[in-house]
Amino acid sequence: MNETNTLGDVSILGLGSMGTALARALLQRGARVTTWNRTRSKAEPLAAEGAALASSAAHAAQASAVVVVCVTDYPSTYRALEAPEAAAALAGKVLVQLSTGTPQEARDAEAWARQHGADYLDGAILATPSQIGRPESTILASGSETAFRKGKPLLESMAGTVTYLGGKVGAASAVDLAFLSHLFAGLVGFYHGARICEAEGLRVADLGAMFAGVAPAIGGMIKHDADSIQAGTYESSEATLELCAKALDLLLRQSREAGLDPALPAFASALFRKGVAAGYGNEGPSALMKVLREGA
């Protein structure tokens, strides 16, 4: 990452935990950072580190060629920039949206930015605040290619990996939500697994260590299924959907035997059993996508 003062000017709107981490990473890598937050006290610690504090969102937008927004959601972005002078200050600037939202919100924001003369880039952060600026952090971006080229050095100062997903502005938020779908479903599965260990008097910490160790294998399984779905080939090579359904039935039985909440295995078992009933039992587990498509 660039450690010299060649990154230029950037304004950060929104100084929650993530916005503060973004601003701090940019300061540490030599950017000239202007910050703004509705609660000014959150910006004051960054002033001691070299950031300029704007008195309003309009002043922050006027200060830099690239304006990065990292607030609670897209409506909060509009509220921050709703004053006519703030919206007018965006003309000719690059507006980078790093708040969490949906693909439709990204498309609406792009249209709003164009109306105000800004070049728009939609982004998604795949990291926690403490990971910002470190190799394991990732920022996805989609939308204007010219905005991406101008903002890329700044984005690379905030994340170890920056991936441009193309001109379809909703792509970053779509992939982000796809990632969150996997993340939260996986977390619920892990928490259920933690309850299984507790019920048997086993250490949850040991389970976590095991998960960390097998993470590459799990990633390989997911990639295999993703390739299968993309190609539309669901032949079973190592496991079948019916075999997975039987494993989920076992999870459900164990939950009832141990007095655990059966909600997760019951939901998953019913979904896989639906695939078996539809005639996909001898195919690979990725054939469950057919069931999910039929339910759309």
Rank of each mutant, 00 (worst) to 15 (best):
A65H: 14
S130G: 12
V96H: 07
A91G: 12
V96P: 00
A118M: 03
K152G: 01
A60L: 00
R134Q: 14
K150D: 11
A83L: 13
T128V: 13
Q62T: 12
A109I: 00
E105N: 05
E85M: 02
P84M: 11
F148C: 07
A65Q: 14
Y78G: 04
D108Q: 15
H116Y: 09
L95E: 05
D73P: 07
A118V: 02
A91I: 03
I139R: 02
A91K: 15
V68N: 01
S137H: 13
K150E: 09
A147H: 07
S76Q: 12
Y74H: 11
A109N: 05
S130E: 14
S99G: 12
Y78N: 00
I139T: 08
A147I: 00
A86V: 05
R107L: 06
L95C: 05
I125V: 15
A87L: 10
V69E: 00
A109M: 13
A80H: 10
A87M: 01
L126W: 06
P103M: 01
L121Y: 06
A89F: 06
A86R: 10
A57G: 13
S142H: 12
R79E: 15
V67K: 06
A91L: 08
A87Q: 13
K152V: 03
G92W: 04
L140T: 02
V69S: 12
V68K: 01
Q62R: 14
T146F: 04
W112R: 09
Y120I: 00
A113F: 06
C70H: 01
P135R: 07
I132K: 00
Q62Y: 08
T128Q: 14
G133W: 03
A141R: 11
A147Q: 05
